[in-house]
């Protein structure tokens, strides 16, 4: 299994990357950590004519906590975020989710933004980005634009990214006082893609949001009021609404059941750990 031939641009400046992506148009692709793209190249599921490596552009390897959000550049590896000293304080949900993203050997290369760009329906980082209401900043030679995560993910492995554009960063809202977070996942083995993953955020007034990955084509959210008397009914309705399908890993019925139970536990955990 070898990739089909492609041109390779190792950009060291943003303008080089953007020029190359502009020229390459639909035939060009960004390569970041390569942990999703190279398997697709090896299996020839992808045959781009040009790859633009963005990992050597210095300004993309920054993690910045400014105001009420944490901005993560496109060259930041998942392991670098895992080791960021402020992670537990600023992004407790992401901290809980990161160990579930593949294995350490993959996180050492894979980037945070690459996972968002790849938009696998089971992926943990897109799920967190949606649960927290984060956003994605895209840039082309012509313009820079910022899109809410909820609008960025459009379908299974399909996003709002246009030809000639790249993600320069994603931004997660930082933790505020009195909020709580929880992450839970069921997978065949630790490190495998999620059958169902749940991320919950709870606010000081007792309202909460549950985000679920692995079931629908994109992560889906359910907003809950402080009065959770009918929580189980709401979760049941949500589980059906996601239109789970049978596949190799699990039946639709099992997935619905996980949404109900894991969703419940994750929400309760988020509510109870508010501080």
């Amino acid at each position: 299994m070898k990739p089909a031939p492609f041109d390779y641009v190792a950009a060291t400046e943003m303008s080089e990357a953007l020029d190359a992506l502009h020229q390459g148009g639909t035939e060009a692709r960004v390569i970041a950590g390569g942990q999703s793209l190279v398997p697709m190249l090896n299996m020839r599921l992808a045959r781009p004519a040009m790859l633009v490596d963005i990992t050597r552009i210095p300004e993309l390897s920054r993690i910045e906590a400014k105001g009420d959000q944490v901005t993560i550049g496109a060259a930041v590896r998942q392991s670098a975020l895992e080791r960021w000293p402020d992670l537990a304080d600023r992004l407790p949900l992401v901290r809980a989710a990161l160990p579930w993203v593949g294995h350490a050997q993959l996180r050492n290369r894979g980037t945070v933004c690459g996972s968002v760009a790849h938009a696998d329906p089971s992926a943990e980082l897109p799920l967190c980005l949606i649960a927290l209401g984060g956003n994605v900043t895209l840039r082309s030679r012509r313009k820079t634009r910022t899109v809410a995560a909820r609008d960025f993910f459009q379908g299974m492995m399909s996003t709002d990214l246009a030809p000639g554009e790249m993600i320069v960063s994603v931004a997660f809202p930082a933790r505020k006082d009195g909020t709580g977070f929880a992450f839970r996942e069921v997978a065949r083995r630790h490190g495998d893609f999620a059958i169902v993953a749940c991320a919950a955020t709870a606010r000081p007034d007792g309202t909460a949001t549950l985000a679920v990955g692995g079931v629908a084509d994109t992560p889906a959210t359910l907003d809950l009021p402080a009065d959770m008397a009918d929580l189980d009914d709401r979760l049941n309705e949500f589980a059906w609404h996601l239109q789970a399908r049978d596949d190799l890993h699990a039946t639709a019925r099992y997935r619905r059941d996980l949404v109900r139970r894991l969703g419940h536990t994750t929400l309760k955990e988020a509510l109870s750990c508010r501080d």
Binding site: Y8, A10, I31, G34, Q35, V38, P39, N42, L51, D53, T55, S79, A104, Q105, L106, N108, R109
Partner: peptide, 20 residues
């Protein structure tokens, strides 16, 4: 799996030119 700058990583998912 090999070590890249001290950290384990999959050599099958790296282009040789990325090891520059």
């Amino acid at each position: 799996t090999v070590q890249v700058d001290g950290e384990p990583a999959r050599a099958c998912l790296m282009l040789a030119h990325q090891a520059d």
